[in-house]
């Protein structure tokens, strides 16, 4: 059984986002593996380490330019066996899913994070399943292999749903799929450069969406402190200034 984890290369979650020329200003940004994808990788490694699961290998794929390679190599340092980089800038969900399909069609289980922490599109996993014609389960929070099928559970309103599915399958995973992302060990860091990182030419496809503009959230207003004794003033402010009651 072969597992593929799709990795997004996203700005560190503490980055102060700046927009210039209607694009993300990448100056000084530290790039990381999209946190949900990193959890997917952790679960993939756990599955591989249990010999009963008969996982032959864990591969990772990312759509991005050469600048994304440090992020990809971190996944190799964590323990992925091989990596693919599809050589183009990911521009929208359909475009990205189409590129990923070049690699994903050869795998039994394809994992993607439920969303990326930068654009939060929540679309790539579903589109990818459709393009490669595989089963698909979204918002998966646990994943186990049971012989030739897999058992996953998903959070639903007020409870949990357990689903069995045949392979191949694309799973979009969310928090809960693994406890913590793994920290690469020194040996893994040292080996990462010796593992294969294949660069694949992008396929020609068009975007389905176009970003018209970005807007920064409005700055928060100044906090007003009201004395605990002064309830009338509080009610007045909530009614007439904040207009929430």
């Amino acid at each position: 059984m072969k597992i593929l984890v799709c990795l997004g290369n996203v700005p560190d979650t503490t980055t102060k986002i700046k927009i210039s020329d209607n694009k993300l200003d990448a100056t000084g940004i530290q790039w990381i593996i999209n946190p949900w994808d990193e959890l997917a990788l952790t679960r993939a490694m756990e599955l591989k380490e249990d010999a009963n699961n008969l996982v032959d290998g864990v591969s990772v794929v990312s759509v991005g330019l050469a600048s994304a390679e440090p992020t990809i190599r971190k996944a190799l340092a964590i323990g992925a066996d091989e990596a693919f980089r599809i050589d183009c800038e990911p521009t929208d969900a359909f475009f990205t899913a189409t590129q990923l399909s070049l690699v994903a069609k050869d795998f039994d289980i394809v994992l993607t994070g439920i969303e990326s922490s930068d654009y939060n599109g929540i679309s790539v996993g579903g589109m990818l399943a459709e393009i490669i014609g595989s089963a698909s389960v979204s918002a998966v929070s646990s994943l186990n292999i049971d012989a030739d099928k897999i058992i996953v559970s998903r959070e639903i309103d007020g409870g949990k749903e357990t689903v069995s599915t045949q392979l191949p399958v694309v799973l979009t995973v969310q928090k809960g799929i693994a406890k913590d992302p793994r920290i690469p060990a020194m040996r893994g860091i040292m080996m990462a450069r010796q593992k294969p990182l294949k660069v694949i030419a992008a396929t020609s496809t068009a975007n389905l969406t176009e970003i018209l503009k970005f807007e920064m959230p409005q700055a928060k207003g100044k906090c007003k402190m009201v004395d605990a004794e002064n309830v009338a003033e509080l009610v007045n402010l909530l009614r007439n200034e904040a207009k929430v009651i």
Binding site: P70, A77, M186
Partner: peptide, 18 residues
């Protein structure tokens, strides 16, 4: 180098998390 940064981040991640 990329490896040096990965080691720095690994050390940071461990102590900041654990």
């Amino acid at each position: 180098t990329e490896e040096q940064l990965m080691i720095r981040d690994a050390a940071r991640d461990y102590v900041q998390r654990e």
